[in-house]
């Protein structure tokens, strides 16, 4: 069975928009895998708070029903990825810690060819184009940021062959398969547009131009 490794950012975006049933539907042929770290982020930790009490209950049901499966990432590989990621960019000769263990664990769990489902932007940029991330850091921090190309290349060996998709792509596929219409009612075009905007407004790193691009690309 094919696998897709899920980050909490995408799962949260989908949950906040009542789109978790899309995962249930799509899990018929693909295993949705989460790491223990993600499990703690979406279930264990939020249960201690009181702001979003329904979220962890929804996710726990998906785990209990076998829709979300827990995978174990190799510890050494996780440490390597974490150490490399956090020693690529430098400011004032100090390495910038840009990701945490959770992101590293997700990437460590993914085998070549297995996509990462991730809405948050930083690891995606690091994997797809680390120079873009350097540009962003420099622009937003208003300070000179240097990049260790050697460590970036070493990190890239882990990232190569692991594509990143977002909840928007999941949504687009669900739309093309007619799954969206089972849960939301509306004219097709309007439905897709509304759902993409809903994901964006809940933190999926989509720009308004991305949304317009999707509206053209999707069948």
């Amino acid at each position: 069975m094919k696998r897709i490794i899920c980050d909490s950012s995408s799962l949260i975006s989908l949950s906040m928009n009542c789109m978790l049933p899309l995962i249930t539907e799509l899990s018929q042929n693909v295993d949705f895998i989460i790491t223990q770290c993600v499990y703690d982020e979406i279930i264990t930790n939020p249960r201690r708070g009181h702001h979003h009490p329904m979220g962890p209950l929804k996710f726990k049901a998906l785990v209990d029903n076998g829709v979300l499966k827990i995978g174990r990432a190799d510890k050494r590989k996780t440490e390597d990825i974490l150490n490399l990621s956090n020693s690529i960019y430098y400011l004032r000769h100090k390495p910038l810690t840009i990701i945490q263990r959770g992101e590293a664990e997700a990437l460590a769990l993914a085998e070549k060819g297995e996509p990462l489902l991730m809405d948050e932007r930083t690891l995606r940029l690091l994997m797809e184009n680390p120079h873009d991330l350097k540009t962003l850091l420099q622009y937003r921090l208003h300070k000179g940021v240097s990049m260790n190309d050697q460590r970036a290349a070493m990190f890239q060996k882990y990232a190569d062959g692991v594509p990143v998709i977002r909840s928007s792509e999941l949504l687009a596929v669900a739309y093309e398969k007619g799954i969206l219409e089972k849960y939301f009612s509306g004219e097709k075009h309007e439905l897709l547009h509304a759902c993409l905007w809903a994901l964006k407004l809940r933190g999926c790193s989509l720009s308004s131009e991305d949304i317009e691009e999707y509206m053209q690309m999707v069948d």
């Binding site: 873009d132 998709i165 792509e169």
Partner: peptide, 30 residues
């Protein structure tokens, strides 16, 4: 709370950063 942060950043345009677009490729993979 990351849920709250995601909700907040979703409503802001300042977090948008297209970089080199790979949307078509991502959709193809999905």
């Amino acid at each position: 709370d990351p849920v709250e942060v995601l909700s907040y950043i979703g409503t802001s345009k300042i977090h948008e950063f297209r970089g080199h677009g790979k949307n078509a490729e991502r959709l193809r993979i999905a």
